Simulated assay, not measured.
Amino acid sequence: MTSTNHKHYQTVKDNSVSKEVFELLHDEDLDMLITSPQPKGTELSKYYESDDYISHTDSKRSIFEKAYHFIKNIALKNKLSLVNSLQKKGKLLDIGAGTGDFLLTAKNDGWNVIGVEPSEKARSIAAKKGIELKPVADFDDHSFDIITMWHVLEHVPDLQNQIKELKRLLKPNGAIIIAVPNFKSYDAKYYGKFWAAYDTPRHLWHFSKTAIKKLFQNENIELVKILPMKFDSFYVSLLSEKYKTGKMNFIKAFFIGLKSNWKAKEKFEYSSHIYVLKNAKN
């Protein structure tokens, strides 16, 4: 990052894999948080080595996993509706495609789809569904009508280069859809260091609405719409309860999630946001 105006914000623990402690630094120019230290290269991959990393599996072993997949199916329909509202059916790229369920949903609706996913395990699951995923992006300039990153941008080691790559791959009249957690939400403030969506060190960056707008403006891409992800407050609150108390407090998590969505109406600070971005008009 080019900004150097960083101040200590919060100390947080990797609750799901390593149990190591990390610092969150507040970039005051961009209004975003940066995980410190940030693991590099192969060192980062070890933090994903867990059966509990739910986006890389189709497992339904527990009530929590079953609930996750039930909500995911509703979310898939909502994501498809958003994509269809932005463009006529064409070429769609999903970066960080996980096990390929969103691409399968879009493909069945008539989109020409391809995805990028670094996890070999997730790619093999997607292949069984007839979804082609590549380990890294290697595509021609301006070749996609829609590019999606569903809870992926926060994982990308080189943030500025990733945004440049999105600009390169997008057709002039195309749209980028980014979904990321919002550290300014009520549930983030309520749970503090136990907030599950910090998910350090897998989440390297923690965005606000201001940060997304400024980061993409640097590549002449403008923010045209922000949408709430209302289910996320319940899912994140449930995990946060587990990290805070050691128990899945379903009732408490439900009420915190509900309160977070209610409070979000005032300043539009939901647990997670979807950002729709397009090339700025000259």
Rank of each mutant, 00 (worst) to 15 (best):
T2I: 15
T4H: 11
N5W: 08
H6R: 13
H6S: 09
Y9L: 12
T11E: 11
V12N: 04
L24P: 01
H26C: 08
D31N: 13
D31T: 10
L33Q: 05
P37K: 10
P39W: 10
T42Q: 12
L44Y: 12
K46I: 15
D52S: 14
Y53M: 07
T57M: 06
D58G: 12
D58T: 07
S62P: 14
E65R: 02
E65P: 01
K72M: 11
K72S: 14
A75K: 09
L76W: 00
K77R: 07
L80K: 06
S81T: 12
N84S: 05
G90I: 00
D94K: 02
G98M: 00
T105M: 03
K107Y: 09
N108R: 04
V113H: 08
G115M: 10
G115W: 09
V116R: 00
E117W: 01
S124W: 06
K128L: 05
K129P: 00
S143W: 06
F144M: 06
F144Y: 06
D145P: 08
D145M: 05
W150G: 08
V156K: 11
L159I: 12
I163T: 11
I163C: 14
E165V: 06
L166F: 14
K171N: 09
P172G: 13
I176C: 12
V180H: 09
S185P: 07
A188V: 06
Y191L: 01
K193I: 12
A196T: 06
A196R: 01
A197L: 03
P201H: 02
P201V: 15
R202Q: 03
H203P: 00
L204N: 06
F207S: 03
K209Y: 05
T210Y: 02
I212H: 10
K214S: 14
F216E: 03
N218W: 11
N218C: 10
I221C: 07
K225P: 00
L227V: 11
P228N: 10
F234Q: 07
V236L: 14
L239K: 01
K242V: 03
T245F: 00
F250V: 08
K252Q: 03
K252A: 13
K252E: 01
F255D: 03
G257I: 11
L258A: 03
L258H: 04
K263W: 01
F268G: 00
S272Y: 09
L277N: 09
N279C: 08
A280M: 11
